[in-house]
Design a protein around this nucleic acid. Structure first.
Lengths: 200, 200
DNA sequence: ACCTGAACACCGTTCAAGT
DNA sequence: ACCTGAACACCGTTCAAGT
C-alpha cells in the first residue's frame, strides 16, 4: 500500500516494520524468496539494519511462520460454529476453515510447513502440534459421544490433518483443477474422510 | 561417489551429467537450493556451460522433477502385488509405496510438488495427473467389484491422493514424530482412509 | 542503543571469443 | 556444435564507524 515511510534516523519499531514488510512481500508473489535487501529498502533502512533485529534471513522467515500459525488459530476460532453444535459440524467447520486459510494464503502456508528454509523449527512444531492437540480433543469428544468410530485418536487425527494438509497443498500447487480432477474435488474428498471417521 | 571426471574439451554427454550431478546434490541435503555453479564445478565444466543445455536453473529443476515422476511410477510398478490380488490390496500397496517413495526421497518429492521454483509446470502436471488417472481407474474397479463405496471416483481419488500427499509431506517435515503424534500414526491414518473408501 | 557504508564472498545469467 | 573467461547486476552477511 504505502511506499517508503519517512522517518528519523531511528525507526520507531523497525522489528515490527520488517516483519510486516516481509509478510507483504511474501503474499505478493515470489514466496519466501523475497530479498532481505528489498525488505530493508521498502522499510526505508539500510540493508544492514535488519541484522540488528534478526540474526539472519531464516530467523525472519521463522517469525513469519509463527505469525502464520497465530492467524490459523484465529481462523479456527472464527469458524467455530455457535455453541450448541454437533461434534461433526465442528469437525467439518474446522476442516473447511483450515483449507480456506491455506488456499487464501498460499505462500504463508507453504512457509509454515517447510523446514528447509527456516531456522530452528522447534517453536514452529510446537505451534503446529498445538493445533493437532485441539484436533485430537475434538475427535475424542466425538468418539465419546458415539458419533465417531472408536479408533486411536492420534491416528484418526493424523488422518484428518494429513488429508486437509494434502488437499491444501495440492490446491495451492494448482493440482486440483476442476477440469482435471473434477469440480468439487475438495468437497468430495472431505466426504470420504468423514465416512472414514464417522460411525456408520 | 566420484569426483570431477577427467574429460576432453567436449564433455561426452554434458546434459545427462548435469542432471545426474544436480540430482545427487538435491538428495544430498540442501534441497533445490543447490548452486548451478557448483553443479558445473562438479561436472568439471565452466559455470557457463550448463546454459548450452538448459535455458536456466528452473529448467534443470523441472527436468529433475520429471525424473522424479518417472521414478515414482517405477515404485508403483514394483509395489504392485502379484496378479491374483484384491483391489483393496492393490490400493494399500500403492498408498504405502507412494508414502515410502516420498519419505525416502524428501528433497526430490518436495521439488516434484512445488511450482514456485520451477519453469512451465505443464509437463509436470501432466505426469502428476497421469498417476491420478491410474488411481481413479483402480477405485472404479473397486467400486464395480462392490468393495469400495459408490462415490464419484474423482472425489474418492482426490481423498486418497490428498491423504497420502499430506502424510508424506508432514513426515518429510518431521511433523509426524512418534513421540508427539503417536507411533504408527501413518498406519493408523491409512486405516481411517480405507474405512472411508471401503464398503462396510 | 540503533543505524550506515563499504567490503567480502558468493550467486544466476550473458556474451564475445576460443577449440 | 560445444565450451571458456570475463563481466554485470545482484545476493546474504559482516564490521568498523557514525548519530
Amino acid at each position: 500500500m504505502q511506499d517508503t515511510i519517512e522517518r528519523p534516523y531511528h525507526h520507531g519499531d523497525l522489528r515490527r516494520a520488517l516483519i510486516e514488510t516481509a509478510m507483504a512481500m511474501l503474499q505478493e508473489g515470489k514466496g519466501w524468496q523475497f530479498t532481505l535487501r528489498e525488505v530493508a529498502r521498502r522499510a526505508g533502512v539500510s540493508h544492514a539494519a535488519p541484522y540488528k533485529h534478526f540474526p539472519d534471513k531464516a530467523a525472519l522467515l521463522t517469525e513469519l511462520a509463527l505469525v502464520g500459525f497465530d492467524r490459523l488459530r484465529e481462523a479456527f476460532d472464527a469458524a467455530k460454529p455457535p455453541d450448541p453444535a454437533s461434534v461433526k459440524d465442528e469437525l467439518v467447520a474446522a476442516a473447511r476453515a483450515y483449507i480456506r486459510f491455506g488456499t487464501a494464503n498460499p505462500a504463508l502456508y507453504r512457509l509454515m510447513f517447510s523446514t528447509e528454509d527456516k531456522a530452528s523449527n522447534i517453536h514452529l512444531s510446537a505451534r503446529a502440534l498445538g493445533a493437532f492437540e485441539v484436533l485430537t480433543a475434538l475427535l475424542a469428544r466425538g468418539q465419546a459421544a458415539g458419533v465417531f468410530r472408536e479408533r486411536p485418536v492420534q491416528g484418526q487425527a493424523a488422518a484428518c490433518w494429513a488429508l486437509c494438509h494434502g488437499i491444501t497443498m495440492l490446491a495451492i500447487e494448482h493440482l486440483l483443477l476442476p477440469e482435471k480432477v473434477g469440480a468439487g474435488a475438495v468437497e468430495a474428498a472431505l466426504v470420504t474422510l468423514f465416512e472414514g471417521v464417522a460411525q456408520d
